Amino acid sequence: MKTLYAALQLTVLLLASDYLFAQEEDLLKLLGDEKPKKEIVKNAFKSTRVINGHSMEFLSPGTMDFRILHRFGQLNQGLDNFFGLDQASMRMGFDFGILQNLMVGVGRSTYKKELDGYIKFAPIRQSTGTGGFPFTVALVTGMTMNTLDWSDPARKNYYSSRLAYYFQSIIGRKFSEAITLQVTPTMVHYNIVPLESQSNDIYAVGLGGRIKFSKRMAFTWDYFYMVNSLDKNIYKNPLSVGLDIETGGHVFQLHFSNSTGMNERAFISETTGSWTKGELRFGFNLSRVFQLKKTRKEH
């Protein structure tokens, strides 16, 4: 009997140890199968604009970005014009975050007294974790309206002649906390052009980027190469370089640019300044974000 009892005890111990081992193995499998959640990559840029052009960044839902873009006259005008500081052009804009991947904006520029508006949507955003994607694809469409008086009021002028449109794709990637790059194929459409020989459609490819070198400061640039132009003897490819400085709720950017206009139609297709001739303008962009609507936090 003692031998049988000992055998039963041993059997029970072996079965119990097998059960506990199986339970531990199942728990380990569960832990091993847990995959990281999908997360959108943010802060590729400190702003929804690189300098002139749109960036791959989006406003959070329920927020408004009040933006002032200010640019002085050309530096090569010398002391008589205080190196351009006696002149200025600006754009004032209001941008609104609708969804995580959708935002809209409106603006008013002193250059040609233009009004502009746009919609930006990202069908794909760079993300990490399960189902992550290595880069962002965003689409932008906008319209501008020239509100200057007609140059020749005696002739029949059409309202549609004041309008121009632009269409962009932004393909960008935040490679690290320090480096972000993006490319922006663009088309600008004029309803009317000065000469019959000129094309109503201007095609360009933009390159933009950021190199962050401290917690609150980064070097940024954007450049647009025009594939065709209204007049290559007059209009140049726009190039802007800047320094982003984050100060709490503000993003303050100092920059140099050869463009005067600050909406897509103006700076892409009507930049006349030349970097090689010193026809540069010093300016600054100021961005202040306001929370208009509280968003629910996920639990």
Rank of each mutant, 00 (worst) to 15 (best):
K2E: 14
L4N: 07
Y5D: 05
L8W: 02
Q9F: 09
V12Q: 08
L14G: 06
A16K: 11
A22P: 02
A22K: 11
Q23W: 10
Q23F: 01
E25V: 05
L27G: 09
K29D: 14
K29H: 14
G32P: 02
E34C: 09
K35V: 07
E39A: 13
N43F: 15
S47I: 00
T48R: 01
T48E: 11
V50E: 09
G53D: 03
H54P: 08
S55P: 03
P61V: 02
T63L: 05
M64D: 08
R67P: 03
N76M: 07
G78T: 11
D80M: 09
D80V: 06
F82T: 00
F83Q: 03
L85C: 00
A88C: 00
M90S: 09
D95W: 01
F96N: 06
I98G: 00
L102D: 03
R108S: 08
T110R: 05
K112S: 10
E114R: 10
D116Y: 06
Y118S: 00
K120F: 04
K120V: 02
K120M: 10
F121P: 00
A122T: 05
P123H: 09
T128L: 12
T130F: 15
G132C: 05
A138N: 04
T141M: 08
G142A: 01
M143E: 10
T144I: 04
T144L: 02
T144P: 00
T147Y: 01
T147I: 03
Y158R: 11
Y165A: 03
Y166E: 01
Y166F: 13
F167L: 00
F167A: 02
Q168R: 01
S169R: 01
I171K: 05
I171H: 02
G172Y: 07
G172T: 02
F175H: 05
E177V: 06
A178L: 12
V183M: 12
P185K: 10
M187P: 05
M187G: 09
Y190W: 13
V193H: 11
I202G: 06
Y203S: 03
Y203W: 15
G208S: 10
D222Y: 06
Y225A: 04
L230V: 07
K232D: 14
N233E: 12
I234H: 06
Y235T: 06
Y235W: 08
L239F: 14
L239P: 02
S240T: 14
L243M: 13
E246Y: 04
V251Q: 05
Q253E: 12
S257M: 07
M262E: 06
M262Y: 01
N263S: 11
N263L: 05
E264W: 08
R265W: 08
F267R: 06
I268M: 04
I268F: 03
T271R: 00
G273A: 08
S274P: 06
G278N: 10
G278K: 11
R281F: 08
R281Q: 11
R281S: 12
S287M: 08
V289L: 09
Q291N: 14
L292Q: 08
K294Q: 06
T295L: 13
R296F: 11
